[in-house]
Design a binder for these strands. Sequence first.
DNA 1: AGCCGCAATTGACAAACATCAAGGGCCAAG
DNA 2: CTTGGCCCTTGATGTTTGTCAATTGCGGCT
Lengths: 232, 232
Amino acid sequence: MPDFIHEDIRKLHLFDAMAQEHFQTLMRGAFVQTFPPQIDLITEGDPSDFLHVLVSGSVDLFSAWNGRETSMATVRPVSTFILAATIREQPYLMSARTLEKSRIALIPSVEVRAIFDTDSDFARAIVTELALCYRSVIKAQKDLKLRTSSERLANYLLRAQARAGGQPEFELGFEKRRLASVLGMTPEHLSRAFKGLHPHGVAATGTRVRIADRTSLERFAQPNPLIDDPKA
Amino acid sequence: MPDFIHEDIRKLHLFDAMAQEHFQTLMRGAFVQTFPPQIDLITEGDPSDFLHVLVSGSVDLFSAWNGRETSMATVRPVSTFILAATIREQPYLMSARTLEKSRIALIPSVEVRAIFDTDSDFARAIVTELALCYRSVIKAQKDLKLRTSSERLANYLLRAQARAGGQPEFELGFEKRRLASVLGMTPEHLSRAFKGLHPHGVAATGTRVRIADRTSLERFAQPNPLIDDPKA
DNA sequence: AGCCGCAATTGACAAACATCAAGGGCCAAG
DNA sequence: CTTGGCCCTTGATGTTTGTCAATTGCGGCT
């Protein structure tokens, strides 16, 4: 594995405090692979043999039941996924597939657990990371249970704009059909929801979105830090 | 605090591996309080000053936004809640109130964090606990996004029956209106959903439910371990 | 027993959301 | 430039779920 990838991974909160020796042990057992778009990386129910670290590209976490499928989250670099399954030695609860060409580091779960047992800095970092993940799912659940689909879209756009640096115009980053799945609605309904936000200054052309009047959109969306702030 | 409560708490996975000395430190700073039913224990957004341990009774975790309210989970003894907020030193994401008369131990968050830093067994236990919590929320989210309300009810009843020991008849444990909120629907709709399950052998009288034909109900509910098994 | 209060139910209706079936726009290959 | 594919959109319609209002039913209290 090239050194610059080591450095990218090392910079993650999860790995930045642990002993160098332990980090190197992890990296020795790990390997990096590049995947084309739309490749299934893991399937829910499979044993969690590897902790995954997305180095570049993007990955969709999704789940299926009874012929239906829903997108649970989008992973962006550089971050890990399926940490909880690795820790608990339990099967994955979600499937994962690449959205674009992606570079992914695979670290054997056995080694993660072994070092977790000996390196308390690493253990602490895992706790912090897991607590963060937990809170973000709770927020997603509140979003889902307390808001209508238009409200979810409005708040999603506000967050996306903030993430993109706050300019009035920004890229969605993926297709609308996937956004619909993330928001828990159909593509058709999303299309109508976008139209419904037009009076509040939202204009979408393709994958590009323009928020003309943030104040008006906020009045409609009623964003709340306890749901929408990723840091809270 | 009486000793038998210490013992109950000590038996929790979260505390059963840590050094006795550290456990005693935690307990010295903690206090137990008994609350009547329907008392607000914490409000979302408040700073997380205490880790709560429910010793007896039951507690509802809920959340509100824009005039709407939804029940996120029910806590049953003996278990802790709002661990993630304590760890991250962040405000609570959910409010909590007693459902019945409840006895609750309050452990100052500062001390939890301090001992977490020195006792690696405790840190490990926290990781395990958090990973478990995380996975259970993911399951809840899959339940919400992939199933209709009738399907959620059907699967809930199957789980409740299993939890109650598997007898054909069992107690719900709380009011139907709260069940409706947990399942993300209105009480009226829940009432109709129960009627819809009648052909599959479900009969509900008050807070008591009878599943006459589990096989038939399972055929309709399509339970899946990756959503419904609390241990997975 | 009778009354009260509250939860649960029921019915009628409205809103939210999904489905199905066409069309339109974009882009890349021929 | 045309063609085909794919996504997005649009319209019509159906299903699911929520709301409102009224009623029933049950348990506690007097």
